[in-house]
Nucleic acid binder design. Structure first.
Lengths: 229, 229
DNA sequence: CTATACCTGATCGTCAGTCAATCTGACAAT
DNA sequence: ATTGTCAGATTGACTGACGATCAGGTATAG
């Protein structure tokens, strides 16, 4: 575990990238909104070069779509895309869990259980932000113990991509209790050092979350979906 | 299936991006090689802006690593990274197969089987390029029938990332016969409309390929691995 | 002879300005 | 109502420039 003490300069490009990503996943820009270079430039106080490079990265992540000669737009999330994302999330999270069950240290297992207990203590009065923060910690511990940088990177992207959906499904009353129960199955399988059961438990957990989220999405039919014919 | 007749301009940025990616995965640049902006500029006849944007994308794909103030280098592939990539490939390919078994049309199933038969007809005298081309067609058909753009994009990236390894493992004598046999299990499961068995068969196929590739990698210990202490 | 200090060239990160191509929207003409 | 045209805005791409940073070699001190 050689901790790198090297300090890495944070280029302005990365600040713009992270700022823009945060603004999108937190909903400060509405889906479909137009983000011309000009406004991004004086919003971040950067030149067009760095803004354009940052936008390219977010385009590769799927957070913005760039129409030729029209510029970047905040990406929509269609129900079909959402379902696809949940499918991929399912197998990646399952792999992460399986890997965690194989490779994590005892400390990491204990920490994961601690995060779960933190979540289980929450009553129905917990705010969305609290729940998202705890879930984020859960993922951080899980991915750290999984010893696989690729699954971590890809899962991060997918979690960003459907952040809005996660927020709405987490606010569904009664979902919290099910989440806690499903994650208990994951934790227990991990403690039993049972990778296969962990895999299955993780995948089914995501599948349940997908069912809730997609049901809500069908009920609330796409708040800002100007469809492009 | 509304075919879009819209013509899309191919920006110069994309040409540079694809050209550079092809050059790297085909081994025209050695791992660890330094690719300064300057040489890329007059190699592609483009300006620094577009070269830099293209390099950013390849950095996000993991094909190049950019050291601050030193520029882009062709990425190395350590044995640990290779193993991680194969793990992720396993679950993604399994998901693709499972999805194909669920959603593909009869025509697509027939085409997948045709590609497999094409592969099975090859004797041990087949060239690496031929085998890679057939395998590429197999993936194209599989991903098209899986109806999931995300798994397609991510799997594409991973296949590019470890192209060198795939080439070496495909050239291993006797590997072809095993590949054909493993893929037959996949095809048969698909024809039986058995998503679960397809999932397992795909994942085990990738696992076997990983075993061969990583064994070769351990024998041929990293041809160009100047390790950075 | 070794080790430190220093200098120099190369490269990156960023910026500002320019130019052509293209899209949008409105307005005019048929 | 449809078509044609024009002005403004925006993108795609290029160029030149400047300071900051790093690698490598050279000179100097011990």
């Amino acid at each position: 575990m050689s901790e790198s003490l090297r300090i890495v300069p944070q280029p302005m490009r990365r600040q713009v990238e992270e700022g823009l990503r945060a603004a999108i996943v937190n909903g400060r820009f509405a889906p479909g909104e137009h983000l011309p270079d000009r406004v991004l430039c004086d919003l971040f106080g950067a030149s067009r070069s760095v803004v354009r490079e940052a936008v390219r990265l977010l385009e590769a992540e799927g957070l913005v779509t760039v129409q030729p000669n029209r510029g970047p737009f905040v990406a929509h999330l269609s129900p079909e895309e959402a379902a696809q994302i949940y499918d991929v999330r399912g197998v990646l999270e399952a792999l992460a869990g399986e890997s965690f069950a194989r490779h994590a240290t005892d400390e990491e297992r204990a920490e994961l259980r601690a995060v779960w207990e933190d979540l289980a203590r929450r009553g129905p009065g917990a705010t969305r932000e609290d729940l998202l923060a705890i879930k984020r910690r859960f993922y951080d511990v899980l991915l750290a113990g999984a010893r696989n940088a690729y699954v971590a990177r890809m899962l991060d992207q997918l979690l960003n991509r459907n952040m809005q959906l996660r927020a709405t499904s987490l606010s569904d009353p009664g979902r919290l209790a099910w989440t806690v129960k499903e994650l208990k199955r994951v934790i227990d399988a991990i403690d039993r050092r049972d990778p296969d059961e962990t895999f299955t438990a993780c995948r089914e957990h995501v599948q349940r979350a997908a069912d809730v989220a997609l049901r809500l999405l069908a009920a609330h039919p796409s708040p800002n979906a100007e469809d492009r014919s």
